[in-house]
Amino acid sequence: MGLAAILLAAFVLYSWQTQGSSAVTTVFVQKGKNLHLDVNKPVVIPEFHEFRWRVNDNYNVVRLPPDNKTKIVDPYKGRVEFSVQSHSLLLKNVQHNDSGDYTALISGDKNQYVAEYKVIIQDPVSPVQLSVNSVSNSRESCNLTVTCSTEDSLINSTFTCDNQTCNQEGGEQSKNTTSGSSLHVYLLNDSIICNHSNQVSWTRHLKEIQYVCSLTAVPDEGTRVAIWIVIPVFLLCLFLGCLIIYQKRKKTTYCKNTIYASPQEMNPTQTPNQQTTEDASGCQNSTYALVGFPNGPKRSTVTEKTTSPETIYSEVTSAPKSNHHRELKKHG
C-alpha cells in the first residue's frame, strides 16, 4: 500500500507540473536550414510570470520577463528571432549540436508547458547509383539483376519481365543505412527506381526496363536470317556503286581529248568550223578548225626602177634689137 501511494503521488505531481502541455512533436531539419517552432494555442501569461523557450529542459534560449523585454541567451544571440505576439521561435543555420528537446513554458509557482518538440538535425542524403549487374534475354522474357548503392550501403534486387508485365523477386526491397537513411528498390511504370532518402531530403536514379533489356536482346531465328541476307546484299550494292563511280571518273579523265589549232595559212574563202567525232569507247573528240593568217597581195621580189620626175622650164626668147642700137654699132 505504501509503494502504490508513492507512485500515485508522483503521477499526480507530474501531471500538475505539466498542466496544459501538448503531445511531443518530432521535427526533422536539414543541417544549415532554419528551425521554426510555434506555440499552437493562445498563451496567457499571468502577472509576475515569465515565458521561456528552453532546450533539454536545462538551458534557456529566450526569456520574456513580465516587463516584455526579450532576453536572448548569449550562445544564441544573432541566431534567434522571437515574436512577442505569437511567442514563436526561429533558430537560424542549425547544426547537429542544436538537436534536442525544445519546450515553451510559463514559469511561476509552477511550470506550465505550452509546446514541446523533439528536434533532430540531419544531413542531406548522398547521391545514389543504380547499376545493372547482369541481363539474360530470350524470346519470351528478360531477367536482370541490379544494385542500388550509396557511399556506405547497397542493396540488390532481381526482376523478370515478359512482353506484358514485370515482376520484382521478393517485392520491394529496402534497407536502412549506417547514416540513418533508407535505400529502396522498386518498380514504377516499367522503370526500376533506386531511392535514397531520409526525413529531410531524397535522391533517386532510375532505368527503363525496356531499354536495359534491348541492349542485349537476342534476335529470333527470322531476324537472324534477315540479317544474314540484308548485310551481304547491302555490301554488294555498296561495292557496285563505288565501281560505277570510279569508272565514270576514269572515263571523264581520259575523254578530254581536245586539239587546239595551230596558226597556218588558209584560203581566205575557207570558213572556220568544229568537227566532233566519237571513238569506240564513246568519248567525244573535239577538233577545232585550223586558224590561218589572211592572205594579202604579194609583194614583187624584183627591184622596181625609179625615174626622176621630169622638170620643164619655159623657153625665153630674146627681144629684137632696135634700129638705134644697130646704127650705133655700125658707126662704131
Rank of each mutant, 00 (worst) to 15 (best):
K305H: 10
S308Y: 04
P297C: 09
K305M: 07
E304G: 13
V302A: 06
A280K: 04
S308T: 14
Q284N: 09
G282W: 08
K298W: 01
L290S: 09
E310T: 14
L290Y: 00
T301P: 00
T311D: 06
T311P: 02
T307V: 13
T307F: 15
A289V: 02
T277P: 01
T306D: 04
S300Y: 03
Q275N: 14
S286D: 10
Q275M: 12
K298C: 05
P297V: 14
N285K: 14
P297T: 14
Q284G: 02
T301A: 06
E304T: 15
C283I: 04
D279M: 07
E304D: 13
E278F: 02
E304C: 14
N295D: 08
V291C: 13
K298V: 10
K298N: 05
A280E: 07
S286T: 15
F293L: 10
T301V: 07
E304F: 12
C283N: 03
T311C: 09
S281T: 11
G292I: 14
R299M: 03
T303E: 15
V291M: 06
G282S: 05
T301H: 03
F293Q: 07
G282H: 10
V302E: 04
Q284C: 02
R299Y: 02
S286P: 00
S286I: 15
E278V: 15
A289W: 04
S308W: 04
V302Q: 05
A280P: 00
T276W: 01
T277S: 12
T306K: 12
V291T: 12
A280R: 02
K305C: 00
F293E: 06
S286A: 11
T287E: 01
C283E: 02
G296M: 07
C283K: 01
P294A: 11
N295M: 11
V291P: 00
